[in-house]
Design a binder for these strands. Structure first.
Lengths: 215, 215
DNA sequence: GACGATAATCTTGTCAACAAGAGTGGCGCC
DNA sequence: GGCGCCACTCTTGTTGACAAGATTATCGTC
C-alpha cells in the first residue's frame, strides 16, 4: 500500500483542530479542492476527514453542497454540559477509587499550570491546560468507551469554550473548582469528587447561559 | 450528481443491521468485494459504511487488512450499561416533565406489545419492542445529542442483547421494569422515573454478568 | 513428514478522469 | 431600471484502473 494510513487520521485531526479553533467563519464553505491545497494531502483524505467531522457533528454537509461548520445552539451546549456531567461523574469516581500516583501527579501539575496561566492573560493556553486535565482523569479512569464519548462532546462545545472562560472572574473560579476535584481524588473520596465535578459543570452551564444570552 | 445520497446512508444502515444481527461470525473477514456483491452497491459506499462502523466501534479494521467484527468485553458491556444509565436518566426526567400525550400512548402500546410477546417465545421480537420503547422516550425527551449517544452505545451491546434476555425469568422482569418506567412518566414524577430507569439498567448489568460469566 | 522460503493470488488504499447537480453572472424582456 | 431566464463555471460524487501490502498455496530442503 502506497501510503502509511497515518495520512487519513492526521488529516482528520488537523482539520478538526482548525474547525475547533474557529478558523472558518460562520457560513463559510469548506471547498475540498481548497483544503487539498491548504493541507497538502490527497483529496481522498480530505473527503474522509470531512465525512468524519460531519459524523462528529462539527460540520454539516447536505447532498452535493459544500461542508459548512455547524452552528451549535445554546440548548445543545447546555445538553452537552449535562451529558458530560453525568459521564465525567462516573469517571471521576473511578479515578478517586484507583488513585493512580502518576495520574494524580499529572493532574496536580496541570492544576499548577492553570494557576500560572491565570496570571498571564493567555486564555487559550488556560483552556488548553483545562482540557488536558479533563483528558488526564478520563484516561486514568481506566474506562474504555466513556472517554471517547466525552471527547466527542467536548469537541462540539470547544468552539465556545474560549468565550465562556472570558467572563469576569470565571477563570479563577474554574481553577478553584478543578483544585477541589483534584483534592477530592487525592483524598480518595469518590462522593466528594463526584460533587466537585457536578459543581464544576453546573457552573460551566451557568456561564454558557450568561455568555451567550448577552450576545 | 448520479446517485441520490441515500445510497451511502442506506448501505451503512443495512450493514450495521447485519453486524448487530450477528450475521458475521467471530473472526470472519468482511471483504469489500463480497459486500459489494451481497448488497449490490458501489464499492465506495461499502468503504464508507465500513469506516463509519469502525468509528462506531462495531468493527475493527487495521491497516490494509480486512474488517472484522469487534469482540466486546464484559468490562465494556458493563461500562456501556453504566453510561446509558447516566444518560437515559437525564432523558427520562425530561420525558416525565413534558408528559407528551402521543409519546405516552406509544410507550404504553409498546409495553403492551412486550406483554403480548412474552407469551410467544419470540425473543428477538421482544428485544425489538424493548429497543423501540427506549427509542420512543429518547425522542420524546426533546434532546438533540443524547439520543444519538445512547443509540451508539446500544448498537455496541446489541449483539449480546438477545442472550441476556434469555436468562430464566428475565423477560418478565424486564417487562415489569419498563411498566414501572412508563407508569412513573404517566404520573409525571421525574424522581420516580429516574429511579425506575436506574433500576432497570442496574438489572441489565447484573444479567450481563451472570449471562457472560457462565459462558 | 514438517518446516521455511518463494511465488501466485487476493484485497485494500489511492489516484486521475468524468458526469451531474449547485452556484454565478450576464443577457434579454417587461 | 428591475426581474427572470439561460449559459457558464465550480464543486461534488462516482467510477474504473492500478500499485502495494497481506494471505494463501506451492515447492524444496532438512
Amino acid at each position: 500500500m502506497p501510503k502509511i494510513q497515518s495520512t487519513g487520521e492526521d488529516t482528520y485531526r488537523r482539520l478538526r483542530r482548525m474547525v475547533i479553533d474557529g478558523r472558518f467563519s460562520e457560513g463559510q464553505r469548506l471547498v475540498e479542492a481548497d483544503l487539498v491545497e491548504t493541507l497538502g494531502v490527497p483529496r481522498m483524505a480530505v473527503r474522509q476527514a470531512l465525512a468524519r467531522l460531519e459524523y462528529d457533528g462539527l460540520l454539516v454537509k447536505q447532498a452535493g453542497r459544500s461542508s459548512v461548520v455547524r452552528a451549535v445552539s445554546l440548548a445543545e451546549l447546555e445538553e452537552i454540559a449535562e451529558a458530560r456531567m453525568a459521564l465525567e461523574a462516573i469517571a471521576i469516581r473511578r479515578v478517586a477509587l484507583l488513585r493512580t500516583p502518576t495520574a494524580l501527579r499529572r493532574m496536580e501539575e496541570l492544576a499548577d499550570r492553570m494557576s500560572a496561566l491565570l496570571e498571564t492573560v493567555d486564555v487559550s493556553a488556560f483552556v488548553e491546560a483545562q482540557a488536558a486535565l479533563h483528558h488526564v482523569w478520563l484516561e486514568a479512569s481506566g474506562m474504555l468507551i466513556v472517554p471517547h464519548l466525552v471527547e466527542s462532546l467536548s469537541a462540539q462545545s470547544a468552539q465556545t469554550r474560549v468565550r465562556t472562560v472570558q467572563l469576569p472572574d470565571r477563570m479563577r473560579q474554574s481553577l478553584a473548582e478543578h483544585r477541589e476535584i483534584v483534592a477530592a481524588v487525592r483524598a480518595g473520596d469518590p462522593d466528594r469528587a463526584e460533587v466537585a465535578v457536578r459543581t464544576h459543570l453546573t457552573n460551566v452551564k451557568e456561564s454558557l447561559r450568561r455568555s451567550l444570552q448577552s450576545r
